[in-house]
């Protein structure tokens, strides 16, 4: 188990290094001179030179990469050119919206998809199964930001149960959660539909395995076989999908924030793009990639917890 974890940790570190190299190359190498890029074509040469100095662009590429990476490790993400404040501070603030939003949506996804998928698999071919399959087919096809807009029209504008957007801050947790409810539902709908279908088909696959027949020959009822034997084996493909879904949820959160005017990472990064604040874009993208890689690491560990075959093999 430990050996497996260490090996996964090793590949985690390699992924992080390569990801940071890719992002660094995209932002600081491909545009040529980031300083003149950020200032636009009308910039005065001395302003560009000043910015070059400020950004440390006169150092070699490898030195710049190293100082970027070591800076991030000590929590220093540089200073935003437009905001004139440390990037880490701004991101920290915004992260406290985007990350909880994605996590709430993930929770909702799992909470809805598991029972629905299990129900559809146990009652395969029944009207319950058919309606679940039909509903999830729709849920997958709905663009989540459009679904969010429809919910705003219904629940905020017409019924007035929720406000149409904005975020009151975490000082009042109840109000904060309320403000995140509609966005989280909009994010979760398509992912829950996908996960429910994966759960159903994974369960149906495991239910046709030989060991299910063995357990039935021991005297287990159909239901007992499902809960005691099929479910845990079905978790292996389901976990893979959950890992992938977290990255979709994080990316989706960036988009959904736009519908609800939420001050999260999404709005930050779009502003940064329009203001050509490369330092900000670079940091936000790296942070999101970091989060995705960490979640995949957690999923790898969860595999080993579910599947003893992975624990022995290092």
């Amino acid at each position: 188990m430990l050996r497996y974890a260490i090996k996964r940790l090793g590949s985690l570190v390699i992924s992080l290094i390569v990801a940071s190299l890719v992002i660094f190359a995209c932002i600081e190498v491909i545009p040529g001179d980031p300083a003149s890029f950020m200032l636009g074509i009308n910039a005065q040469p001395d302003t560009v030179a000043a910015l070059r100095e400020e950004l440390g662009l006169n150092a070699s590429l490898s030195a710049r990469y190293l100082s970027w990476v070591t800076g991030m490790m000590s929590g220093d993400f540089g200073t935003s050119y437009t905001y004139r404040t440390p990037v880490a501070e701004i991101i920290g603030e915004r992260l406290w919206l985007s990350l909880p939003l994605a996590l709430i949506a993930l929770g909702l996804t799992v909470l809805v998809a598991f029972p629905v998928g299990i129900l559809a698999a146990t009652k395969r071919g029944s009207w319950a199964d058919m309606s679940v399959m039909g509903a999830t087919q729709l849920g997958i096809a709905v663009p989540n930001f459009w679904f969010a807009m429809l919910m705003v029209v219904l629940f905020a504008i017409n019924l007035r149960w929720f406000s149409a957007g904005g975020f009151p801050g975490w000082e009042n947790p109840a109000a904060a959660l309320k403000a995140l409810t509609l966005p989280a539902i909009a994010l979760a709908l398509p992912q829950a539909s996908i996960l429910a279908r994966v759960m159903r088909s994974a369960l149906l696959d495991t239910l046709s395995e030989d060991y299910i027949r063995t357990s039935r020959a021991k005297g287990l009822t159909r239901r007992q076989s499902l809960w005691r034997h099929a479910l845990r084996n079905a978790m292996i493909p389901v976990l893979t999908i959950i890992g992938l879904q977290f990255s979709f949820l994080l990316a989706g959160a960036i988009i959904i924030e736009n519908v609800f005017y939420l001050p999260g990472l999404g709005r930050l990064v779009f502003q940064a793009i329009s203001q050509r604040d490369l330092i900000m874009v670079e940091s936000v993208v790296f942070l999101l990639v970091f989060a995705v890689i960490m979640v995949n690491f957690a999923v790898d560990l969860a595999y080993a917890w579910v599947d003893p075959r992975l624990r022995g093999r290092a």
Binding site: S15, V18, A19, V22, L244, S247, F248, L250, A251, I254, I255, V285, L288, V289, V292, I293, N296
Partner: peptide, 10 residues
Amino acid sequence: DLIFAFPSLL
């Protein structure tokens, strides 16, 4: 695996 860590939005 690496590309999977970059959703198309990123």
